[in-house]
């Protein structure tokens, strides 16, 4: 899809020489009397390599047409996380490196939005917060009050997060999926 370089923003996906890139940074610059120049820093979405490219105003780039699919998270196989389209039963893998922090918030059977480039799964869209059950944590330290004291807790996906001291095994807690930080207790376990 031909796009004016001036319309390219952070996180625009571009196809260059057949490879898919995510734009990490756009730097606009312009000699006072000259043409606008756009310096793009981009990450290759397959191998993670970072490249810089310079474009003149008026140049066209190929913006990737991305689609989204509702898929189910199945399981992990070495460094691949496997998802399945619930209608077509087609399966797609996304690498651990691409998922980054998002890998910590996947429960088997969970429905997620997968970002597709053609028939290749590129990335996941997660809700901003997710509720997860605590499966392991130390019992509150003797003398600890319900104040700023934090302790590590493990949630059902295996992710270890700092929580307040009052959190117990069985509690359901809310976590920010962008930062991985504990937000609040949703319910108390029995």
């Amino acid at each position: 899809m031909d796009t004016e370089i001036s319309g390219v923003k952070k996180n625009t996906k571009l196809v260059i020489d057949g490879a898919l890139y995510n734009v990490i940074e756009v730097e606009f610059t312009k000699p006072g009397k000259g043409r606008s120049v756009y310096r793009l820093r981009m990450q290759n979405m397959r191998d993670g390599g970072v490249t810089d490219r310079t474009y003149r105003s008026g140049e066209k780039v190929d913006a990737a047409s991305m689609t989204t699919e509702e898929e189910q998270y199945l399981y992990r196989e070495s460094d691949q996380y496997i998802f399945m389209n619930s209608k077509s039963y087609e399966q797609h893998g996304i690498s651990e490196k691409t998922l980054g922090i998002k890998k910590n918030f996947l429960k088997e059977g969970q429905t997620v939005i997968v970002l597709m480039f053609g028939d290749e799964a590129i990335d996941l869209q997660l809700p901003i917060t997710i509720d997860l059950k605590v499966i392991d944590t130390e019992t509150a330290l003797r003398g600890a009050t319900i104040t700023a004291q934090m302790k590590p807790s493990v949630v059902e996906t295996g992710y270890k997060v700092d929580t307040p001291a009052f959190i117990k095994v069985g509690d359901v807690i809310k976590i920010d999926t962008r930062t991985g930080v504990y937000l609040e207790r949703v319910s108390t376990g029995k």
């Binding site: 610059t29 000699p31 000259g34 043409r35 120049v37 310096r39 310079t54 003149r56």
Partner: peptide, 11 residues
């Protein structure tokens, strides 16, 4: 070559 002039200037 005014177009090359601007890009080479920045780069």
């Amino acid at each position: 070559d005014p177009e090359k002039f601007d890009v080479d200037f920045i780069d």
